[in-house]
């Protein structure tokens, strides 16, 4: 599926949706498709700090464990308990129900460093093997 137009993307296949100084993040449809059946999601707690381009959690599929990277610096304000309880939500609804964290931004300018949806679609298509 084409990337939703209101999202920004990292080269490591995380997405970000900005709402004021809080952003919601998750992993892309391309990423969940590459991983296959998701069996486990490990996320930081509210209050924890995350750093841009640093791993903040782990998503496991049957075949492998993958780090997920923060698109921006900030502080976790909420994590999605539903996706911790039912990791296969990531496969079923990567851009809606399976958001992972809400983060309070430290520096809004970091959002502009990310790819927009059309750029990400091209990038993800190229990343396929």
């Amino acid at each position: 599926m084409a990337a939703p137009k209101d999202l920004r993307f990292t080269k490591t296949h995380e997405w970000l949706r900005r709402d004021g100084d809080v952003v919601t993040i998750g992993i892309s449809d391309h990423a969940q498709n590459e991983l296959g059946d998701i069996t486990y999601v490990e996320l930081p707690e509210p209050g924890d700090a995350v750093s841009r381009n640093e791993p903040f959690g782990v998503v496991e599929s049957v075949k492998a464990a993958s780090d997920v990277f923060a698109p921006v610096d900030g502080e976790v304000v909420e994590r999605n308990e539903s996706v911790v309880e039912a990791p296969d939500l990531v496969n079923r609804s990567p851009y809606e129900q399976a958001w992972l964290l809400k983060i309070r931004l430290n520096d809004p300018d970091q959002v502009d460093l990310l790819m927009d949806a059309p750029a990400y679609d091209v990038y993800a298509e190229t990343a396929k093997h």
């Binding site: 490591t12 296949h13 990423a31 991983l35 492998a64 464990a65 993958s66 780090d67 997920v68 990277f69």
Partner: peptide, 8 residues
């Protein structure tokens, strides 16, 4: 996202 462990 990046794969940190690959089986086999």
């Amino acid at each position: 996202m990046s794969e940190s462990q690959e089986p086999n």
